[in-house]
Amino acid sequence: MQSYTLNNGVQMPALGLGVFQTPPDETRAAVMAALDLGYRHIDTAAVYGNEREVGQAIRESGLPREEVFVETKTWISDYGYDETLHSFDKSAAKLGVDRIDLLILHQALPSDFDKTLAAYRALERLLADGKVRAIGVSNFMADHLTALLDATSVVPAVNQLEIHPYFQQRAVLDFDDRHGILNQAWSPIGGITFYTGEERQSVLADPAVTAIAGAHGKSPAQVLLRWGIQQGRSVIPKSTKPHRMAENIDVFDFTLDADELKTLDALESGHRGGPEPADVTLAAYGHILIPEA
């Protein structure tokens, strides 16, 4: 498994298992299967409602705690300095860990950025106290990051973004690269393009992708994951099926050439599958409360 060195020296596996929209009653088995297949990085979030099952699977796997990189996210209803400190307590208790490897803010919350800054300062405190090994953000655009960097002292280690060939966010990727922030792709195989219910083609069925897959004897999903990893991004594909998990992790034995990378880069549609960052407000999403452990 390839790994990346974050900007504070922490090592993070390049590929992990995402558990977004995985029901709690399926999460334990999915994470157990992933760990058995060689995954050593699990990405969850407080708002997913399955941190407890992720922790159960890690403990029951028998693997030493330090061998599994655990990443989770603080939800906007827990933003604010004291609230975010307490959000760590809730997540750590559900996960059954004393320290979280990577804790990130789930959204920028541009309509209430003072709360966002207070939440990030709480992450800085947790980092200084050794309760987390690295801190970061998710779905932050360049203007959000600029404001964050101007007001805080720790550069985020990671920015988790919607990234796949149909939506590449190159301006944000470039900003992160210039500032030593690792880009991490959610929906790296374009799942967001076919669970929105809109009438448009899945990137997995795109002829350009399937042609490259055929040339390498790989699946379209493997090509898309390789596209991300080869350009220095972390990827966290989601699956609950062991055969898909095995396929997704088998992406380190081939290389896309420059023309293939260029072909995939040219698929940019400019169409965001997830919510617009400006639409994520406390009024719209703050009613989702994170229960105590």
Rank of each mutant, 00 (worst) to 15 (best):
A151M: 11
N139G: 07
A122K: 06
N139F: 06
G130K: 06
A128I: 00
F113G: 08
L117I: 15
L105N: 05
A108V: 08
S153G: 11
D114Y: 05
A118L: 11
T116S: 13
D129M: 07
A134L: 03
D112K: 14
L109I: 07
R125S: 15
T116P: 08
D150Q: 15
V132D: 08
D143K: 13
L127E: 10
S138Q: 02
F113E: 07
I104G: 06
N139S: 12
T146A: 14
G136D: 05
A119G: 03
A151V: 10
P156R: 01
K115Q: 15
V155H: 05
V132H: 08
A108S: 14
M141C: 04
K131F: 04
V137A: 04
H106N: 01
D143M: 11
L145P: 06
D114P: 02
Y120L: 10
L126K: 06
M141G: 12
L126I: 01
L145D: 09
T152M: 10
L148F: 02
P110V: 08
D150L: 13
Y120Q: 08
K131T: 06
D150M: 13
L145T: 08
D129Y: 02
T146Y: 01
K131E: 10
L149A: 11
L109S: 07
L127Y: 15
N139I: 03
V132C: 06
A128C: 00
A147E: 14
S111H: 13
D143R: 14
A118T: 01
L126Q: 07
K131A: 09
A147N: 14
E124W: 03
L148E: 09
A147M: 12
A108P: 09
A118F: 03
L105Q: 09
D129G: 05
A118Y: 01
A122L: 09
H106P: 03
A108M: 08
L105Y: 01
L109T: 10
H106S: 05
I104D: 01
V154M: 10
S111R: 11
S153T: 15
L123T: 07
A118S: 12
V154H: 11
Q107C: 10
I135K: 03
G130R: 08
R125G: 00
G130T: 06
P110H: 09
L103S: 06
L123K: 05
D114H: 12
A157G: 07
F113Y: 14
A151C: 09
T152Q: 10
T146Q: 15
S138L: 01
L109D: 09
L149S: 04
G130F: 05
V137T: 10
A108H: 07
V132Y: 04
L148K: 05
Y120C: 05
A122M: 07
L103F: 11
L126G: 09
V137P: 01
L103I: 03
A108Y: 06
A118R: 13
D129L: 11
S153W: 11
R121I: 09
E124N: 08
D112Y: 00
L105A: 05
A108E: 04
